[in-house]
Design a protein around this nucleic acid. Structure first.
Length: 486
DNA sequence: TGAAATGTTGGGGCG
DNA sequence: ACGCCCCAACATTTC
């Protein structure tokens, strides 16, 4: 008796290893069809941003090639998943449709309906966990609710066993004759202008590159991660975020590989061991964000702390534009915003600095920063992006206290002490001595002249005075504190 | 996963 | 020798 084909619907799980849906499809025994749907219409405000589209192109090309080697063609379709998935299931004669779960609210709602619709057509459906260490509904406090504070969440996570990764399927039988869009026709790559040069230089999308990143990190950087992770001038972080976002590598794989590293250390509580656990705790922040989003679907739009709805934001369009362009006059902020624009990525420490600056120095709503990051980050991830902006704004779950305002000068001096980061991304300041690099407006006129810096001309004057901006922010926060008390 | 303001301490200069 | 002041260094609290 022949087994009917299985349709695997790929989404943010663009890998063959540790892919439970694909693994189950291969194990079911019949032919396997693979589908990716460009579902912009379903996504509303949260369809893939520009940098993500660039990445998606490369990732889909890599996935198609890897699947082809296993005997399976990747079918590309564009439109509403609720129509396309059942249609491709019919076209392929599938008896079952498998996919890995996503946690964006719009996907959760859509997929639930879709699953019912497929079942109504008599198809077997099953969804799997490929994106998280643990499902959001399985991690509960002693009270039985979801965690709202990171530290106890992380403690709870450490008590749990992480499931091992699934093996990569061997050769499969494909389904012939399914029509597919051409990837090029989706026009995911920018053309006029082609702003993706820096992205191409910086990144290689795809599962193989993701594994390469992880391997290189474990080999060269993880030992010093604890001490150097906050240094944007060093290559001290894993840079796995876009690979994780698109599911080119899964968190269980990262967890398992890091545990292997820990075992090779012989379980010693030394620097390397502490660093490795620090790295895992960052993976747990990703997990925490996903759980928050799952339990609070309004996270990307609404402040978690409700009194922040009354916050007296400013709507200074010119200031927002200066921030996006990296022309605020604060070197560490500008360096970060330019790194983001050119490479589609930003060091986490600098994300906090530029985020604090937008929200607290410029008093611009965090949702605007969130939207800019959504469009420009290759790793733009609904859960991480929303949770992190709420964190830095002081309105999120377990957020930084509202009065925690980053001083961009001190942050620059502390985390870019030799100024290599600023000099690289803000070359017009490269000639300044270290002493003035992070605060050029305080430099004596002759120092500026020697460095070829003309403030207000070759490099902007500070957009705001940080000390005064800080006082304004604190006063604004006092306003909503009163509101909360009433 | 801050920074600034304020408080405390202790060494050294000096009358 | 002693008390006084200054102030850097560190600690605590406040925003």
């Amino acid at each position: 008796m022949t087994v009917s084909p299985t349709l695997v619907w790929f989404r943010l799980d663009l890998r063959l290893s540790d892919n439970p849906a694909l693994h189950a499809a291969a194990g079911r025994g019949g032919p396997v069809a693979a589908l990716f749907v460009l579902d912009d219409e379903d996504a509303g405000d949260w369809s893939f941003g520009g940098a993500q589209r660039w990445w998606l192109h490369g990732s889909l090309a890599a996935l198609a090639e890897a699947l082809a080697k296993k005997g399976v063609a990747l079918v590309l379709r564009r439109g509403r998943a609720a129509e396309i998935v059942p249609a491709v299931a019919r076209e392929s004669g599938a008896g079952a449709v498998y996919w890995n779960r996503c946690y964006e609210p719009w996907r959760v709602a859509r997929d639930r309906q879709l699953k019912q619709a497929l079942a109504d057509e008599g198809l077997e459906t099953e969804s799997f966990n490929a994106a998280l260490l643990h499902e959001p509904w399985t991690v509960k406090t002693g009270q039985g609710g979801p965690y709202g504070v990171y530290s106890p969440f992380w403690r709870a996570l450490q008590q749990r066993e992480v499931a091992p990764p699934w093996p990569t399927p061997g050769a499969m039988t494909g389904v012939e004759g399914l029509e597919s869009d051409a990837l090029e026709d989706w026009q995911l790559l920018p053309t006029r202008p082609d702003w993706a040069g820096g992205l191409r230089e910086t990144w290689t999308p795809g599962e193989a590159a993701a594994q390469g990143r992880l391997g290189a990190f474990l080999q060269h950087a993880i030992e010093d991660y604890g001490e150097e992770r906050n240094r944007p001038d060093l290559e001290s972080t894993s840079r796995l975020s876009p690979h994780l976002h698109f599911g080119e590598i899964g968190p269980r794989q990262v967890w398992a590989a890091t545990q292997d590293f820990l075992e090779r250390q012989g379980g010693q509580p030394g620097k390397a061991g502490k660093s490795a656990w620090k790295f895992l705790s960052e993976l747990a922040w990703r997990e925490f964000s996903y759980h928050l989003l799952y339990h609070h679907p309004a996270l990307p739009e609404q402040p978690w702390r409700e009194n922040f709805r009354a916050f007296p934001w400013s709507d200074d369009e010119a200031a927002f534009r200066a921030w996006t362009k990296g022309r605020t006059g604060y070197p560490i902020v500008d360096a970060g915003m330019r790194q983001l624009w050119q490479t589609g990525w930003l060091h986490n420490r600098v994300r906090m600095v530029v985020g604090s600056f937008l929200v607290k120095d410029l008093l611009i709503p965090w949702q605007r920063g969130e939207a800019w990051f959504w469009d420009t980050l290759v790793d733009a991830d609904l859960a991480n992006n929303a949770a992190s902006w709420q964190w830095v704004s002081g309105c999120g779950a377990d957020a930084a206290p509202y009065f925690r305002i980053f001083n961009p000068v001190l942050q620059g001096e502390k985390f870019d002490p030799e100024g290599t980061y600023v000099r690289h991304w803000v070359p017009e300041l490269a000639g300044l001595p270290d002493r003035w690099l992070h605060k050029p407006w305080e430099a004596p006129a002759e120092v500026l002249q020697d460095a070829g810096v003309r403030l207000g001309d070759s490099y902007p004057e500070p957009l705001v005075d940080h000390q005064r901006a800080r006082q304004k922010a604190l006063a604004a926060f006092e306003e909503i504190k009163k509101d909360a008390a009433e």
